[in-house]
């Protein structure tokens, strides 16, 4: 049974916009202009595409946020992710970039209101994946720092490694993330103990560390291009037990910077750059 000639005229062709709206909204009817063989009904046929799109994007979110997925359980996560997918489609065919707004969504999604740490766990997981795909780069070594004239050090600025991220949280985000990813129990963790996290890729693999007091502000300022002197002073203001030597050796070990530049008076010296 073919559909009427009236529907088949070019003026009545359903634009792809109708098709795409119906793809992600199960309450919309099957779009005009699609059919099974011989004009047969195509509701279940269109549902194949609906299912492919939604399940595909939900699966992508499961892959990007494995700790959040385990924390809330598979069935719940998938229901929640469907709500997000309807509101927020990827803007790029690079699916590993999807979910940038998922943490904010978690903050406003009432059914997880009691899991106040969840959004920050998602932020850490998003940073982890960004670090995983970030450009390869040299890592600043102790000898690079050692080559700087000690009196120039306070004026030194650093070049952020592409895979380095700092996350400041009011929750035990690193402990929860680490225990979850290594399959350990969370029962000993107080979720309301504030933690600062550091994500980096000093060698091949992405590493996540918890930062000591003052280190987050120290590193965040350096990443923003402030001088070592400014960053150290700010960190000491924030945390009276901030230890500069420990912070510097920690930042070298974690590979947070790719290079260093000294800019005093008219002299400008770059030891090495993100040449990769």
């Amino acid at each position: 049974m073919r559909r009427s000639a009236e529907i088949s005229t070019p003026g009545n062709i359903a634009p792809l916009g109708d098709f795409t709206n119906a793809l992600v909204d199960p309450d919309l009817p099957t779009p005009r202009g699609v059919m099974g063989p011989g004009g047969a009904k195509a509701d279940k046929r269109f549902d194949v595409y609906r299912n492919n799109v939604t399940v595909g994007l939900v699966n992508a979110l499961v892959d990007i946020f494995p700790a959040v997925h385990r924390l809330v359980g598979d069935a719940f996560f998938r229901q929640m992710a469907r709500v997000y997918v309807q509101a927020e489609r990827p803007h790029s065919p690079l699916l590993f970039e999807y979910g940038g707004t998922f943490p904010q969504f978690l903050e406003t999604f009432a059914p997880v209101e009691h899991l106040s740490y969840l959004a920050d766990v998602a932020r850490l997981e998003r940073q982890w994946l960004d670090a995983f795909h970030a450009a390869d780069s040299k890592v600043l070594e102790a000898q690079d720092l050692g080559a700087v004239n000690p009196e120039d050090l306070p004026h030194a600025r650093f070049i952020r490694h592409p895979a380095a991220y700092v996350l400041r949280s009011s929750f035990a985000v690193v402990s929860i993330f680490s225990a979850n990813r290594s399959g350990q129990s969370l029962s000993h963790i107080d979720p309301d103990a504030a933690e600062d996290g550091l994500v980096s890729r000093p060698h091949h693999d992405v590493e996540v560390r918890q930062l000591p007091p003052g280190a987050a502000v120290f590193l965040a300022m350096l990443m923003d291009g402030e001088t070592l002197g400014q960053a150290a002073s700010q960190a000491a203001d924030e945390a009276e037990d901030f230890d500069l030597a420990t912070a510097i050796s920690g930042m070298l070990e974690a590979g947070i910077f790719a290079g260093i530049s000294i800019n005093t008076h008219s002299k400008r010296e770059t030891i090495h750059d993100q040449s990769d």
């Binding site: 793809l23 595409y49 992508a60 803007h91 065919p93």
Partner: peptide, 15 residues
């Protein structure tokens, strides 16, 4: 698979 800046992650059919 892309329409109006949204990526649908599926191979959708053409007329």
């Amino acid at each position: 698979s892309t329409h109006d800046n949204s990526y649908y992650n599926d191979l959708l059919p053409v007329p």
